[in-house]
Design a protein around this nucleic acid. Structure first.
Lengths: 133, 133
DNA sequence: TTTTTTATGTTAGAAAACCTAACATTCGTT
DNA sequence: AACGAATGTTAGGTTTTCTAACATAAAAAA
């Protein structure tokens, strides 16, 4: 059943399983960086009863993507807006967005013009496909 | 490429990612039980630098299977032998095994005759398929 | 150029999670 | 009754993670 399959997939990718130490290894980010990105609401890891962060595979994917964006010279504000746009572009007719598409384009262009090193390798999509299906 | 696919699969299932607290939730076993099974070499979780146990998805699968075997009245010695047989049955012509198949059958029969409650539900294979692909 | 801001490093102190080892308990088996 | 297997419980110690604060380098703004 297709639904079950997708459901299973979603569950296993969103289940908070990993402690920060493992996420550090998987992403090669420092704890400081990971916490900083959370502080800026780019990720929202679950918490254990004792308040320890527990990360899902989706969180790890997002972190790898964030790392890639940062490497490309995009700053956190930019990444934040990209995610904001991603989360609700399905219906055009929805309430007027806080940021227009034009504004996004401007932001991205500005980032591009201001960034120093800008010759990336291939289109390295940040994800966990090296480790997980 | 088939090889890559299998390789990826193996890596993601054997990578030590999970702390014992998560494994407890996933398996509904106590820390004491998990450590006891390790003591009897039914599992061999990796260790962090600071000596904390880190479990793979395979470990979790095995634990669920152990739980199932125990529920069926098979004791740890029996489970151990089952695993020992599993690990080298590919070639018939190999060096004479420590335990013969006949011996295994006897063991299993004994377990069966001695166990009290012996009406299981369906063939509940212990694995993580509810959570992971 | 000077000043701010961003992203990250570092440190300290506290709390949570985990470890090993020992002893206790339950319940079949002998 | 005595024993052994599986698990519970507790104690003391170590590791991991947390928050909060201050430090710093590089980029952006003024």
């Amino acid at each position: 059943m297709k639904w079950v399959k997708n459901m299973t997939h979603r569950v296993r990718r969103t289940m908070p399983l990993l402690p920060i130490s493992i996420v550090m290894q998987l992403t090669e980010l420092t704890a400081r960086q990971i916490r900083y990105y959370e502080e800026h609401e780019l990720i929202s890891p679950a918490r254990s009863e004792g308040n320890k962060r527990m990360f899902s595979l989706n969180d790890v994917d997002t972190l790898l993507e964030i790392k890639d964006f940062l490497d490309q010279g995009i700053n956190i504000a930019g990444i934040k807006k990209i995610y904001a746009l991603r989360s609700q572009p399905t219906i055009e007719k929805t309430a007027p967005q806080t940021i227009t598409d034009a504004e996004l384009r401007r932001i991205l262009r500005d980032e591009m013009l201001n960034s120093k090193s800008f010759d990336r390798g291939g289109i390295r999509q940040g994800d966990l496909s090296r480790f997980f299906k």
